[in-house]
Deep mutational scan, measured.
Amino acid sequence: ELREAFRLYDKEGNGYISTDVMREILAELDETLSSEDLDAMIDEIDADGSGTVDFEEFMGVMT
């Protein structure tokens, strides 16, 4: 189920989504998050600083 959700956002099928897209997902899930909260969450999610979120990083957030 998580893989299907990931595929919805990984429109190009390249195995990752951008941190911008991940930020939008988080904002949709919790509309009360401030910009600073979102920045901090993205920094934590994208631990390797690649600017992308792969499936493993995505799973870590969603579980």
Rank of each mutant, 00 (worst) to 15 (best):
25 I>N: 00
12 E>K: 04
49 G>Y: 04
54 D>Y: 10
38 L>P: 01
48 D>H: 07
23 R>Y: 03
16 Y>T: 06
57 E>P: 01
12 E>D: 11
6 F>H: 08
12 E>V: 04
51 G>F: 03
8 L>H: 15
22 M>H: 00
33 L>Y: 07
7 R>H: 13
56 E>N: 11
22 M>F: 09
9 Y>F: 08
53 V>Y: 02
7 R>T: 13
18 S>P: 10
16 Y>I: 05
15 G>K: 02
5 A>S: 07
40 A>L: 12
8 L>Q: 15
3 R>I: 13
45 I>L: 09
2 L>R: 02
43 D>F: 12
5 A>V: 15
6 F>K: 11
33 L>M: 08
2 L>W: 15
8 L>C: 15
49 G>V: 04
35 S>M: 11
16 Y>M: 04
5 A>E: 08
2 L>V: 05
56 E>H: 11
26 L>K: 00
62 M>W: 09
48 D>P: 02
24 E>I: 14
17 I>Y: 00
35 S>G: 11
26 L>W: 03
59 M>P: 00
55 F>S: 02
63 T>Y: 07
31 E>A: 14
6 F>W: 12
33 L>V: 04
50 S>N: 10
61 V>K: 06
2 L>M: 10
56 E>F: 12
12 E>M: 08
10 D>F: 06
20 D>L: 12
14 N>K: 13
60 G>A: 15
57 E>H: 12
1 E>K: 14
8 L>I: 13
25 I>P: 00
50 S>Y: 05
3 R>M: 12
13 G>A: 04
12 E>N: 07
25 I>C: 03
16 Y>A: 04
1 E>L: 14
56 E>A: 10
28 E>C: 14
8 L>W: 14
45 I>G: 02
18 S>M: 05
19 T>L: 15
49 G>K: 12
37 D>V: 09
60 G>T: 14
61 V>H: 12
49 G>W: 03
3 R>Q: 10
27 A>D: 02
40 A>R: 14
34 S>Q: 06
60 G>L: 14
1 E>F: 14
2 L>A: 06
20 D>V: 13
56 E>M: 09
34 S>E: 05
47 A>I: 12
8 L>Y: 15
16 Y>R: 05
41 M>S: 02
45 I>K: 01
58 F>A: 02
25 I>W: 04
1 E>W: 15
6 F>V: 09
22 M>R: 00
18 S>A: 08
17 I>A: 00
33 L>Q: 03
30 D>S: 07
30 D>R: 09
18 S>W: 03
37 D>S: 08
40 A>G: 07
23 R>T: 01
52 T>C: 04
11 K>A: 10
15 G>T: 02
60 G>Q: 14
60 G>R: 15
16 Y>G: 01
14 N>V: 13
52 T>N: 08
52 T>I: 08
30 D>N: 13
8 L>D: 15
40 A>T: 09
43 D>M: 14
41 M>H: 04
22 M>L: 12
61 V>T: 07
54 D>V: 05
63 T>M: 13
45 I>Q: 01
19 T>V: 11
17 I>E: 00
15 G>I: 03
9 Y>E: 04
4 E>Q: 06
57 E>L: 09
40 A>D: 07
30 D>W: 14
50 S>R: 08
41 M>I: 11
26 L>T: 00
53 V>Q: 00
52 T>D: 05
31 E>M: 11
15 G>Y: 02
25 I>L: 11
47 A>L: 10
62 M>D: 02
20 D>E: 13
25 I>M: 07
22 M>N: 00
23 R>C: 02
53 V>N: 00
46 D>L: 03
39 D>S: 07
44 E>V: 13
50 S>V: 05
48 D>E: 07
34 S>V: 05
29 L>M: 14
57 E>A: 15
46 D>K: 04
34 S>P: 02
18 S>I: 04
50 S>C: 04
32 T>D: 08
9 Y>Q: 04
40 A>C: 11
2 L>F: 11
29 L>N: 07
51 G>D: 04
57 E>Y: 06
13 G>S: 05
22 M>D: 00
4 E>H: 06
32 T>G: 10
29 L>K: 08
42 I>L: 10
39 D>Y: 05
10 D>S: 01
12 E>A: 07
45 I>D: 00
24 E>S: 14
32 T>W: 10
48 D>M: 06
36 E>D: 11
46 D>S: 04
24 E>V: 14
58 F>G: 00
24 E>D: 11
20 D>H: 11
3 R>W: 12
7 R>S: 14
11 K>Y: 10
30 D>L: 12
31 E>S: 14
62 M>T: 04
58 F>T: 01
39 D>T: 05
22 M>Q: 00
50 S>A: 05
8 L>N: 15
48 D>F: 06
20 D>R: 11
56 E>G: 09
1 E>V: 12
28 E>H: 14
1 E>S: 15
6 F>A: 08
53 V>D: 00
60 G>V: 14
13 G>R: 03
4 E>R: 06
31 E>C: 09
30 D>K: 08
30 D>A: 06
20 D>Y: 05
29 L>P: 00
8 L>S: 15
7 R>V: 13
61 V>S: 08
31 E>T: 13
19 T>M: 12
10 D>W: 05
63 T>R: 10
35 S>K: 14
47 A>S: 09
49 G>R: 12
46 D>C: 03
28 E>N: 14
3 R>Y: 15
63 T>H: 11
6 F>E: 11
2 L>K: 02
20 D>P: 05
